[in-house]
Every structure is written in C-alpha cells, then in structure tokens.
Design a binder for these strands. Sequence first.
DNA 1: TGAAAGATGTTATATCATAACCGAATCGCT
DNA 2: AGCGATTCGGTTATGATATAACATCTTTCA
Lengths: 159, 159
Amino acid sequence: MTSVNQPHDHHLCISEALQEARTLCQQKGARLTYLREKVLELVWQSHQPIGAYDILAELAKQEERVAQPPTVYRALDFLLEQGLIHRLSSLNAFIGCPHPGKKHNSCFLICQNCRVTQEIDHQAINQSIASCATDQGFKITDAAIELTGLCSICQEAQG
Amino acid sequence: MTSVNQPHDHHLCISEALQEARTLCQQKGARLTYLREKVLELVWQSHQPIGAYDILAELAKQEERVAQPPTVYRALDFLLEQGLIHRLSSLNAFIGCPHPGKKHNSCFLICQNCRVTQEIDHQAINQSIASCATDQGFKITDAAIELTGLCSICQEAQG
DNA sequence: TGAAAGATGTTATATCATAACCGAATCGCT
DNA sequence: AGCGATTCGGTTATGATATAACATCTTTCA
Ligand SMILES: [Zn+2]
Ligand SMILES: [Zn+2]
Ligand SMILES: [Zn+2]
Ligand SMILES: [Zn+2]
C-alpha cells in the first residue's frame, strides 16, 4: 500500500478516479458532464487540496470559454453530492475522494509543508467519535476531522 | 455537571469566563484591553458560535465609535493566541473556550438546529487521533474536530 | 416535436478576512 | 517627569471565498 506522499505514477490515480466516477455516475443516473469531469480532473491534479478559484484559473488556461465562479461551484457541489470529492473547511479547498461509492468516514492528514493530504478511514477514530456522541446524546450528521501537521517525508527533510 | 444546552444561569458563564481571562492575561503579561475584553464578552454572549461580522454589528450597537473589520479580527487573533476562544472552521465562527489555560484537545459538537456548541475533551478521541498519526508517521500540530448534528434536546423536540 | 427538467452562462452581490499605513496609548527606562 | 520603543487601534482599501437571481442552452422523454 503506497501512500499519497510517496512518489508514484499519479496519472494512474487520475485515470482511476475518473473511471470510477464515470462508473458511479452511470450507476446512479447522475450526469457527469464534460465540465464536471473536467473539474474533477483538476481536483485530482495532485494530492493537495485545491481552491475553487484555483480551479477557475486552471479552467481559464485550459478552456476556450472563461468560466465564472458559479460554474465552478456548481460543478463542485455536484461532485460533493456524488461523494466524488470532499471539502476541507480548514483550508476552504477540495480534494478527490480515493474511495467514492464506498460508505466511509474520513479523517484528513494535511501536511502544512508540502500540503499533501491523505484521507484515512480509521476505525479507532470512528469508534471514539461514535462513543463521544453517544455519551452526549448527540446525533452526528456530519464530521469534519482535519489534522494539520507534518507528513513523514517533510519531517525527515526538516530534521 | 450541567451541559451548555441545558437551561442555566448564563450570566455566570460570562462572568466566570471574563474573570478567568483577566487572571490568565495578568499571569502571562498579556494586555486584555477594553476592546479585547468586550469582544470576548460578545463571543460569550451565548453558547452558539458567532461570526466576526456579527461581533462587529454588536459592537456597532453597543459602542459609540463604529469599529472596522480589522479591529475585530485583531481582537479575535489576540483571544485565539491566548487560548480564550476557538475558531470553528466549518462555520467561520468563534466560540469561547470553557477551560482556557488548561492544556486540552478540543472536539466540538455543533447542533445544526439550535446551533449550541459544546466543547469536549474526550480521551478516547485524543488517543485514537494520536494513534492514527503514529500509524502514518504524521506529526500533528493542529486538530480540527467538528461534529455537526442534533443535540439531545433538539432530537427530543423534533421527535 | 415540444414541454419539462436540468445544466450552464452571466451579472451582481454577499460574506469572510487581511494588507498597509498612521496616529494614539502604554510601557520601560532614566 | 521625560522620552524612545512598542503595542494597540483607527482607517482605507482590497483580497478571497461563496451565492442569489435570472437568462439561455441542452437533454430527456412522452
Ligand atoms: Zn497520486
Ligand atoms: Zn509533507
Ligand atoms: Zn452558559
Ligand atoms: Zn440543539
């Protein structure tokens, strides 16, 4: 199991993510239009979260027609609804989900140096969160767990 | 131990928070100016997170001189540095810390109905987060754990 | 083919946050 | 008390993120 902050063939990540998105959308009868797929591809450009306006800027470079913010936000909303991407509220940015279609809980490890962000579905965290909610009689509908720090590679590099 | 979403004498919460802030700032040689204390008091107006511009609006009502955004943000930055308040990135809002000065980890339970937000320092969560980080060789410097849902009272009310 | 629904274009604006510069208040020292 | 250094707050302008509202185009499907 190679991690997102290790060197790897990232084109494979992109093509797999896009293929999986096509399959999932077809199954659900959701319309993965050209624009939505393009935005998804841009989100997957790296394992670093990307902001809506950065996507907008990339679109401006790559497409003839210059898009406006609502265009990008609508595509992002669609991708969020389909579970193809996640939003990181601590960064106001978006990142591709590595296992869409599978029910999961997310915990994000965000490197403050290289910005590479890893999504983890960690059972102990899930259980402790659930027991915390139970303790308080709280019914969770959404959990944002975003851990910022230094990834293993950046720790080595920085001593 | 009465919870923040139970009826209680909230003036006591406010006065205790302000008193504790004065004590802590004095100990640390930090200057809790009139404005900073006023902003802290406004943050403590309720157990619901408050946005910077809502604070600004309250200041405009209560003070002669109308403040500008940087004034509020500077006060908030000070209060954050002193650990007197927390910022909830999923809401772009701020809430008073119920136990400043004590080292702790925070997990926030945010009711999406009444917006009352409870800060918890939950050992099982802390441990699972720590073990997740260890597993990944990740060194955490900051954790944002924000759980949104329905508090016990709002669950009852809504059936 | 044509009505309905859905997607995108377009304009404007709301909301959240900070840069940069300046004068006023406070502090530390003599 | 006097004075230089530092911190605080005022002010203006702008940057960054996100959405409302309405028009137009495209797809669906009866
Ligand atoms: Zn990759
Ligand atoms: Zn890193
Ligand atoms: Zn209270
Ligand atoms: Zn509630």
